[in-house]
Amino acid sequence: LLYTFTKRHAARYDAAEGCSYGRCLKFILFMALFEGILAGAYQIVAVNWLFEARYEEIMAQTLAAVEATGIYARDQMQLVGEMATRMTHSPIWLIASGIFGSLIKGLFFGLFVSAFASRKPEVFSRNNE
């Protein structure tokens, strides 16, 4: 889908102008940004309302595993648990992590997709007279 939408975007530009690699990559990154906002919004709803008990269970298991390693003292572990719970339920952190993750994925896949979807300007097009 990423290739199809990027190729369709590149086809919108005039033959004399073409659609460069950078323009295609920018389009992919904007799509990834939008996808990150949507993913973060879903994560907010899922963590706080839809699957709240499941996320709490996962958090408890994770904190128990960290506590079993003995890296943190008991009072430090309580602070770590409180901070992790606040970050897991914070809308700002969820949106930011969704955007960051989507931009990283978009950049990685965009490097390859842009190479195949870009169009070089046509030298003998009618607009280049």
Rank of each mutant, 00 (worst) to 15 (best):
M83F: 15
E82M: 14
I95K: 04
A53N: 13
L1N: 09
A64C: 06
F108S: 11
A65R: 01
V66P: 08
A115D: 07
P91N: 03
T69I: 02
K105M: 04
P91I: 05
G81D: 10
T4K: 12
L38N: 08
L38C: 13
M83K: 14
M77E: 08
A73H: 10
I28W: 02
M83Q: 12
G22W: 15
C24K: 04
S114F: 00
P91W: 13
R8N: 07
Y72D: 03
L25T: 03
K7D: 01
M83S: 15
S97F: 08
A39T: 11
E35A: 12
I99V: 15
G81A: 13
F5S: 12
G98F: 04
E56P: 05
S90H: 11
L29H: 02
G18M: 06
Y42R: 11
Y55M: 04
F109C: 08
M31Q: 06
F109S: 09
H89K: 12
L111W: 09
R8M: 09
A65E: 01
A68H: 12
R23P: 02
V123H: 13
F30S: 06
R8V: 07
G40E: 01
Q76R: 14
R8L: 12
Y13R: 15
A32Q: 05
D14Y: 08
N127P: 00
A11Y: 12
R8K: 13
S114T: 04
A96P: 03
E129C: 10
K120P: 00
Y13W: 15
Y55G: 01
A41S: 15
T69P: 05
A46R: 06
T6Y: 00
A11P: 01
C19D: 07
D75E: 14
A115Q: 13
A96D: 02
L1I: 12
L79N: 08
G22D: 13
G70Q: 12
K7P: 01
L29T: 01
A96Q: 06
I104G: 10
S125G: 13
I104V: 15
A68N: 13
W93D: 00
G106M: 01
S118R: 12
T85E: 15
K120D: 10
A68S: 15
G101A: 08
L79M: 11
